[in-house]
Amino acid sequence: MKKEFTCIVCPMSCALTVEEKNGEIIVLGNGCKRGKEFGINEFTDPKRMVTTTVKVMGSHLKRLPVISTDELPLDHLFVYMHELYQVVLEAPVEKGQIIIENIGNSGVDIVASRSLKQIELKKENA
């Protein structure tokens, strides 16, 4: 099986051809070592950082931005999203606070990527 990718490691954007031959993965077209690594990863198990928001109550924002502590398998992305979209938090939240530990048994945590203070929700009068 042969697959083609655009390397996203640097702006060169090398066109990679990755192929499995006799149990060995061969990367062609890469300009550097990091490109080879990327090619192998993309071929076997493409991974991405996950960023999105979760619902938060009691702050000046209605959503808290979150980020994964490491890359996660791309083909499970929507599974993680679904799990994250069920979360409802109460402010305050500290940056780095774990929102979901070991999401989908991946060994990677989802953490808050900013702090959010609690605010008093008072009805403002005109």
Partner: peptide, 13 residues
């Protein structure tokens, strides 16, 4: 509201 989706069929589980 993005957490009360009425947009059917798009958000995959």
């Amino acid at each position: 509201d993005s957490r009360q989706p009425i947009v059917a069929g798009r958000r995959k589980p």
